[in-house]
C-alpha cells in the first residue's frame, strides 16, 4: 500500500531523514512514533507532497509520488495544524472536500457528523472552530471519503473523550473495509491499543519497525519506545 524506500532529506545541509524505509500493507494501522524533531512530520509532509525529498522512492498503491491528481487521490492527509477558509461554514467545507474527491456519499457524511457530535456546529464558520473541532471535521471528511490510505499527523490532539472513542471505532470500521492508516502520535498507550504496526523513529532513522503484537511481546510500547530512544534506559 505505502512504500517508502531510502528517503533522505536535509534542511540547510543538516540531515533530517537519513534513509527512511517504511512498508505499510493494506489494512494496517501504523503508529509512527518518535521524539520531537525525530522527523515524523517531515516524513509525512514528504509523502503527501508538501515538501520535496532529496532522494528516495515513495509509492502509494503502486503509484509513484508526483503532483498528479491520481497520486493525491490515493490518500487523505490530516496535518497537525488544520488550515481552513475562515469565511466558510463547516458544512460547505465538508462539501467542498467531498466534491474535490468526487465523493457523493451524503448519508455516510451525515452518519459521521452525528457520530462526532458536530451537527449543531455545522453552520458555524470554520474560522470560529477550536483546534479539536477542526480535527473532528477533518476526520469526518477522511472517513467519509474513504481513500486508500489516511495519513495523519497527531490526529488525537484536541479530541474530547467522546470524539476519541468515535475516532477509534471509525478507524476500525475504515480498516475493516479495506482502508489503511498511518499516523504520528505521542500517545503511546492509545497507539498500542489501536495500531497493528509500529515504526519508531530516532534522529531521522527508523530504529524499530514491526507488528505491534510482536514488538510489545516483552513489554509495553512505552518501555519499548524508551529502550529504543535512550541508551541509558
Amino acid at each position: 500500500m505505502l512504500q517508502v524506500v531510502s528517503l533522505i532529506k536535509s534542511f540547510d545541509g543538516k540531515p533530517v531523514l537519513k534513509g527512511i524505509n517504511l512498508h505499510v500493507k493494506e489494512n494496517d494501522i501504523l503508529a509512527f512514533v518518535g521524539g520531537n524533531g525525530a522527523g515524523k512530520s517531515t516524513t509525512l509532509n514528504i509523502i503527501t507532497g508538501i515538501i520535496e525529498e532529496d532522494n528516495g522512492i515513495i509509492q502509494i498503491n503502486g503509484i509513484n509520488k508526483s503532483s498528479s491528481v491520481d497520486y493525491k487521490k490515493q490518500f487523505f492527509y490530516i496535518p497537525d495544524t488544520i488550515q481552513v477558509f475562515n469565511h466558510v461554514t463547516a458544512r460547505n467545507w465538508l462539501l467542498f472536500l467531498m466534491r474535490i474527491y468526487e465523493c457523493n456519499k451524503i448519508d455516510v457524511l451525515n452518519k459521521y457528523i452525528q457520530e462526532f457530535d458536530l451537527e449543531h456546529d455545522l453552520d458555524k464558520q470554520v474560522g470560529s472552530y477550536s483546534y479539536g473541532m477542526l480535527h473532528k471535521l477533518a476526520l469526518i471528511a477522511a472517513f467519509t471519503i474513504h481513500p486508500k490510505i489516511i495519513i495523519m499527523d497527531e490526529p488525537m490532539n484536541g479530541l474530547d473523550p467522546h470524539a476519541m472513542v468515535t475516532f477509534k471505532e471509525s478507524l476500525n470500521i475504515y480498516v475493516q473495509n479495506g482502508g489503511t492508516a498511518i499516523f504520528s502520535t505521542h500517545l503511546l498507550d492509545i497507539a498500542e491499543k489501536i495500531c497493528t504496526k509500529i515504526a519508531i523513529l530516532k534522529d531521522g532513522k527508523i530504529v524499530l519497525q514491526d507488528d505491534m503484537d510482536s514488538a510489545t511481546k516483552t513489554g509495553s510500547l512505552e518501555s519499548i519506545f524508551m529502550e529504543n530512544q535512550y541508551d541509558e534506559y
Binding site: T48, G49, K72, K73, I82, L97, I100
Partner: peptide
C-alpha cells in the same frame, strides 16, 4: 496561512 499546502495535498492539479 498554509492553505496552499493543504489544497495541493488534495486531488487538485496546480
Amino acid at each position: 496561512d498554509g492553505m496552499l499546502d493543504i489544497i495541493l495535498t488534495k486531488p487538485v492539479s496546480l
